[in-house]
Simulated assay, not measured.
Amino acid sequence: RNWSPGRARHMNASRRACLVARFGFIYAQERFDAQALLRTYSTDMETVQRIIYAAAVESFYAGKMAYWKFKMRVKEALSLSHMGPESLEDAVLDYIVCHKDAYDVHASVKEVICSMNINPKISFPPEVDFIVLTPLIQELCCLAFSMQTLVPPLDIAFGIDGELFNEKKYYRSSDSDFTAAFVAYHVWPALVEDGVVIVKGEVVTRR
């Protein structure tokens, strides 16, 4: 395959646009589907939203960790035969982009569910298993994995209950107290690139 810096930049920009759009679609549609599913088990909207946010955070973490492990294996293998013209790092990224189906997302889903089961901030009736969120978790893990192949990579912003509300980082949910200065809990994470928010998240603010 012919390689050039211009082609690489174009492909990176194209994939970035698709992945950002996918993040938006998951927020707008698949998050609501998961929310509707959880509401059949619990009428407490805060509990439901906290669970979905935790699933998003844990999924991104699992997807990123899986990417770095995969990248290390690929880099080790390619370093034995790489001749250029692109750098080894570019060759590794190109390989991962072309072979992302080799990512064992099911292992990541299991890791996410295990992490959610011991998360002290979320709880659910014991007869309900977080495995019901597998479709959402799988999509988010794959998205997080793919976002690491971008230059620079995309990630979700760190959020903590009680943080000062930042209008550049979040939207307020409709049931928020719009005069409150602090975040009660998070509904959806913001998406960042090099520390800059490119897609706002959603939070609930209350006094």
Rank of each mutant, 00 (worst) to 15 (best):
N2G: 01
N2A: 03
W3E: 07
G6N: 04
A8N: 01
N12W: 11
S14D: 05
A21V: 05
R22E: 14
R22M: 08
A28M: 07
E30Y: 13
R31G: 06
D33N: 08
A34K: 00
Q35F: 12
A36E: 13
L38T: 04
D44M: 10
T47I: 09
V48N: 07
I52T: 13
Y53W: 14
A56H: 14
V57D: 03
E58N: 00
F60K: 02
K69D: 12
M72H: 05
S79F: 05
M83R: 10
E86I: 05
V97L: 11
C98A: 14
Y103E: 13
V105S: 12
C114E: 06
S123C: 14
E127I: 15
L133D: 00
E139M: 01
C141A: 15
L143N: 04
A144G: 08
T149C: 09
L150R: 08
V151G: 03
D155T: 13
A157R: 15
I160V: 04
I160D: 04
D161H: 07
S176F: 00
F178E: 11
T179H: 12
A180Y: 05
V183R: 08
V183I: 14
P189G: 03
V192I: 15
V192G: 02
E193D: 14
D194C: 14
E202D: 07
R206L: 10
